[in-house]
Computed example of a mutant assay.
Amino acid sequence: MIRLAGIGDEAGPSLAEQVAAVTGLGWSAIELRTVDGVAVADLTDAAFDAVAATLAEHGLDVVCVDSRIGDWSSEITDDFSHDLDELRVLAARCRALGTRYVRVMSYPNAGLPPAEWERRVRRRLRELARRAEQSDLVLLHENCAGWAAADADRMLALVDDGLGLLFDTGNGIAHGYSGVDLLAAIAPHVRHVHVKDGRSGPQWTVPGRGSADVPGALSLLAAHGYTGALSLEPHLSMRPHERDGRPGEVEGFHAAGRALEALLAVPVPARSEA
């Protein structure tokens, strides 16, 4: 069974808003990125304990924690110790939250020659994946920023290095490639999915109304037996990583969630591979 979840801070910065957004849709799973604008790894112990207690009180499972490791805010030449420290903190916090999945990316370049960029990225991610495995975690690489951001062969190389894959249906809109074509090459290795839709610009809209071909992506995932979570990241009223949007707006989140439910309720035709 596919499970529906949502990245909470897409609906509002406070945990109360995030919980209201997800439970208001009748869903029982959430993905954590920030609370009150603070990354999960940077929360004080007291703040994190309050988050975990509140989620448990509302019966919300955590399907994934989104780290900053290798993401758009970093470069491959940054101090690696910061990533090791973040993973160490998240290992304990993911255990408390009952999730094994940690989202990572693959380090934007900082002017290095391509071969050296690849060498450094893969060395770092192999080490991180090794440490994650020791803590019973799985690192999931998202098709967003870094060396393997939009290249299926590079993503599959990271699978060989011990990572899983996280597919975002809308990232191709922002970065200029066909997300469904990418998915066709990596679908057997996808372990988690973010759902958003939009048109060039980018201009974001609810799932099914943009040019990301979300129905086609859902069809491909179903054809490959995907049974993980679909985690809503609509980018409509809140885009915390871009520091815009207006706090406290859950209406757009709910509209996107209902649109996703509608897509799942209607069988979509199989996508031709021709």
Rank of each mutant, 00 (worst) to 15 (best):
V40R: 01
D49F: 01
V121C: 14
E273W: 00
P13S: 14
C144G: 10
A20W: 07
L60C: 12
R154A: 13
P269K: 06
W204K: 04
P269S: 10
D197L: 05
E133A: 15
I186S: 09
R33F: 09
P202K: 05
A16Y: 10
M105L: 10
D49H: 07
S219C: 07
D71L: 08
S73C: 09
W27L: 10
G12F: 07
L165K: 09
E233Q: 12
H141C: 08
V250R: 15
P269L: 12
P240T: 05
A157S: 05
D136M: 12
A270P: 00
N143W: 01
E233P: 03
Y177T: 06
R68T: 15
R271K: 09
D153R: 15
R123K: 14
Y177F: 15
V104P: 01
L182V: 13
P108M: 08
Y107C: 07
G12N: 12
A129N: 06
G257H: 04
I30K: 00
L230Q: 06
A149Q: 07
I2T: 15
F48R: 01
H224V: 04
W204I: 12
V138R: 15
D36N: 15
L15T: 10
G245S: 08
L264C: 09
A110V: 06
L60S: 07
I2A: 06
V193D: 11
L4A: 07
P188H: 01
T44F: 00
I2P: 14
V193F: 03
A96P: 00
T23L: 11
S14N: 03
G198N: 10
A145P: 00
A39W: 13
I186D: 05
P215C: 08
G111M: 07
V38D: 00
K196N: 02
L55W: 06
E261G: 09
A148P: 02
A229I: 02
R131W: 09
L221W: 02
E251F: 00
R130Q: 14
H175V: 03
T77P: 03
A29C: 13
P188I: 03
S73Q: 14
G70C: 10
D61C: 03
S135R: 12
V89K: 12
A16I: 10
A152D: 11
G225R: 07
R103V: 02
S219L: 01
M155T: 10
L218D: 04
W147M: 10
G12M: 06
P188R: 13
R122Q: 15
A259L: 02
G26W: 05
M1S: 13
P267C: 07
Y177R: 14
C64T: 11
R191E: 13
G245V: 05
W204A: 04
V159R: 13
Y107D: 02
S178G: 11
V159M: 03
G24V: 08
R3A: 12
H192Q: 15
A148T: 02
R258K: 13
A223G: 13
A185M: 11
L156F: 01
A16F: 07
N171Y: 03
D9Y: 11
A256H: 00
C64K: 01
D153K: 13
L4I: 07
N143A: 09
